[in-house]
């Protein structure tokens, strides 16, 4: 019983982190038709930036903001300078993001060396609280809370604001959105920055749980891909449900069959592709 409660809570925490990673990935894909293969690298770089800010003596939340902002700016520059030049050439865009992922990964190795480094838990969230009769780290609960707040905020942004309406219009029918005078290029930059910021923030928040190490990027990227395949591109509810589902599955998989955890991820992907290639919530196929 204890095992199941603790692992379920761990699954929730991982699901929360995955949502931060894959909501941006899914929005970018849904709107721009760019599979941003540097998204895992953004997550890792965010964590490294957070680590450096913490080492410089600033607080944890400053590190979260710094991680998110740095990655947002980086994403904005990449979108403006590289992806825009290649507008309309989908595969070139995807391959460029892959090249950038390699550049970020190798530069991080150069700057932060190859040792895994955990980020410290913020002081106010140290220790554990009793949940369903077991003691559970406060920080992981906070991560779940933050991801749910982020999900609600994103939902409100998409469903209740003018910007959100424009983004939804762009996801549904780009040509028509353009024809109606929606400034699509600016929308692209905004969504790309937003997605990058969420990934950077996720990286710092994930630091105390996952630590940060070379290869974190390539550990996270397939998870984001599978969430997208399960949830359908451009769908926030899809990303939300998919993230928590994969969070649970991966956590239990690692606890029960540590050597085969990755194969367990394979099963829902196969099932989704065979039964519903559009994704659980998606309007169209990836």
């Amino acid at each position: 019983m204890r095992f199941w409660v603790i692992q379920s809570l761990n699954g929730l925490a991982l699901g929360g982190l995955l949502f931060l990673l894959s909501s941006g990935f899914s929005l970018i894909f849904g709107l721009m038709r760019v599979a941003n293969l540097s998204h895992g690298a953004y997550f890792m770089l965010g964590a490294y930036v957070g680590l450096s800010v913490l080492n410089a003596g600033y607080g944890f939340w400053t590190a979260v903001v710094a991680g998110a902002l740095t990655i947002a700016i980086l994403g904005g520059v990449i979108e403006r300078v590289l992806l825009r030049r290649l507008a309309g050439r989908t595969f070139s865009q995807v391959l460029v993001t892959l090249g950038i992922a390699f550049i970020i990964a190798d530069s991080s190795l150069l700057v932060w060396s190859g040792d895994p480094m955990p980020l410290p838990v913020p002081r106010g969230l140290m220790g554990a609280v009793p949940v369903f009769g077991v003691f559970f780290p406060k920080y992981r609960l906070a991560v779940v809370g933050i991801s749910i707040v982020t999900a609600v905020a994103l939902w409100a942004l998409l469903e209740r604001t003018r910007l959100g309406a424009m983004i939804r219009a762009g996801v549904d029918d780009m040509e028509m959105a353009r024809a109606l005078g929606i400034p699509v290029p600016r929308l692209f930059t905004a969504v790309f920055c937003l997605g990058a910021a969420l990934a950077g923030m996720g990286g710092v928040l994930g630091g105390p749980i996952l630590s940060v190490y070379p290869g974190l990027d390539m550990d996270m990227l397939p998870l984001a891909l599978i969430v997208l395949i399960l949830g359908g591109p451009g769908s926030l509810p899809g990303a939300f449900a998919g993230s928590f589902f994969i969070g649970f599955l991966y956590t239990f998989g690692q606890a029960l069959f540590p050597q085969l955890a990755y194969v367990i991820l394979f099963l829902p992907m196969v099932a989704a592709l065979v039964l519903r290639p559009k994704g659980l919530f998606g309007a169209r196929a990836a």
Binding site: F29, R33, A35, L37, T90, F91, V94, M218, L221, P222, L225, I226, L228, I229, Y262, V263, L265, F266, M269, L273, P277, A285, A286
Partner: peptide
């Protein structure tokens, strides 16, 4: 297209 690319990538990473 892109879906094919992402599925092959996910399979490879697994």
């Amino acid at each position: 297209g892109l879906g094919f690319l992402m599925i092959t990538l996910a399979l490879g990473q697994i």
